[in-house]
Nucleic acid binder design. Structure first.
Lengths: 237, 237
DNA sequence: TGGACTTTGTGAACAAGTGCACAAGTCGGT
DNA sequence: ACCGACTTGTGCACTTGTTCACAAAGTCCA
């Protein structure tokens, strides 16, 4: 059993769900559970069992029929796939409200990421202490990134600065960017970019809100995304 | 021209993009542009023209061939669809790092939402002033929500509290929830839920990072999500 | 050993989303 | 009034994602 995953291509949709399974499995491990069925895992991750099985099957056949999946083993498998076997140093650019909150957010460290540097363009902020770190100058960005081997960056600047910062980051060698600025940022091929836009999320909710008002006769049960039955009308980010 | 959109069902994927077009159109309006082509709009929103046209066509036929779309008119159409013609009052539950940052984030107000109340379970925080608002007690949640007609809530509590808070919110009459707590929250049918999970986003980036390391021969150009050419390898949240 | 029961892994049907390509309008100039 | 340039709206083919449903594989107990 369990042949290597070989050159199996993992679908995009599955990749976005692996972190969910990972989190669910961590919970299991904490409670000392040794094995989980796809059904239980689905429940913990807010998903359905069939999807869980198919997703996991892309990693290889690591379950045991009649029993389920071995929690520790699967954790190892997923963290390997997600590249969480090492801690990734991360730089946050833009130390405003959001940047500071992210810097102090301790959910990162627990999950394979370590905020290693804070950078801001405002000279007044440079030198300021935030948590354990001192804010550094945007001018030193390239140096900071290179010296500490940073490959992942978070942009938390105002919108107008985001594109320029992204350019600097890419030039400095960053390969993955998480953008919180409410604007479109484009990066060259080979660089990954994801965005989180708070206003956008609220607007999407607002749409369904408004829709509900218009009781012009939609199928009442159809919730926003990927909802089923009473379980998890949760929308994938 | 321009028949009413009738009972046209707008696809989920399109809904998540409407806020992007909205933002792009606001930019156009600011610059005084009167009309935009689908191509220009695509560029501003980080999308491709065909998708823009198809998306907009779900709202009705509001473009003019040979010319493009009238900016002001389309803005009105989209804001109507997204329910942004009114300002929605929002409550933030959980006034930690993130909650405070969100409370002070002024990107909301500009886009149809108004943080109207801050609530926390910690008695030490209740009464504290954050920006213009005083933190209120979780015990008063139902009252706060009811009195101010709040229908949208943001959960920014630690993970363990999230599910309980969601329950309270729903009981109080909230119909849409944006969850920042890194845990699965489930809500009854009829309530919309979206989540934003920072660690998850980073882990997804990490996957592609790791993948790049394994130069075992993937098609080099395939970036994370929806990327094309040099333009916008941006991933939809 | 055998038989009842559980749970995986996956083929195949279905559903949703994307992108191409082009007919059908619209405009401005002559 | 006509022509050429431009841009929308959409049918269609294709890709991606989801769900069902069931054989295969394993456990447990007598």
């Amino acid at each position: 059993m369990a042949d290597r995953p070989a050159g199996r291509r993992i679908p995009e949709a599955t990749v976005t769900r692996l972190p969910l399974y990972y989190r669910a499995l961590l919970e299991c491990a904490d409670r000392g559970t040794e094995t989980v069925s796809s059904e239980r895992l689905a429940e913990l991750a807010g998903m359905n069992a069939a999807k869980v099985r198919k997703d996991l099957s892309y990693l290889g056949s690591y379950g045991t029929r009649g029993v389920g999946y071995e929690v520790e083993f699967l954790l190892g498998r997923i963290s390997g796939e997600l590249g969480l076997t090492q801690d990734w140093p991360v730089v946050i650019v833009g130390v405003g409200n959001l940047g500071q909150a992210l810097a102090n957010y301790h959910g990162f460290g627990a999950r394979g990421f370590r905020v290693e540097a804070l950078v801001d363009a405002d000279p007044a902020k440079v030198g300021e202490q935030v948590g354990e770190l001192a804010v550094e100058s945007l001018d030193d960005l390239a140096e900071v990134v290179a010296e500490r081997g940073i490959r992942i960056a978070i942009i938390a600047t105002p919108a107008p600065a985001a594109q320029e910062v992204a350019g600097l980051l890419v030039a400095a060698g960053v390969a993955s960017i998480l953008n919180f600025a409410p604007t479109v940022v484009s990066v060259p091929d080979g660089v990954s970019l994801r965005k989180v836009d708070l206003a956008t999320e609220l607007q999407i909710l607002s749409f369904y809100q408004a829709e509900q008002g218009n009781w012009s006769g939609r199928k009442g049960s159809k919730r926003a995304p990927g909802s089923s039955s009473p379980v998890i009308p949760e929308v994938a980010s």
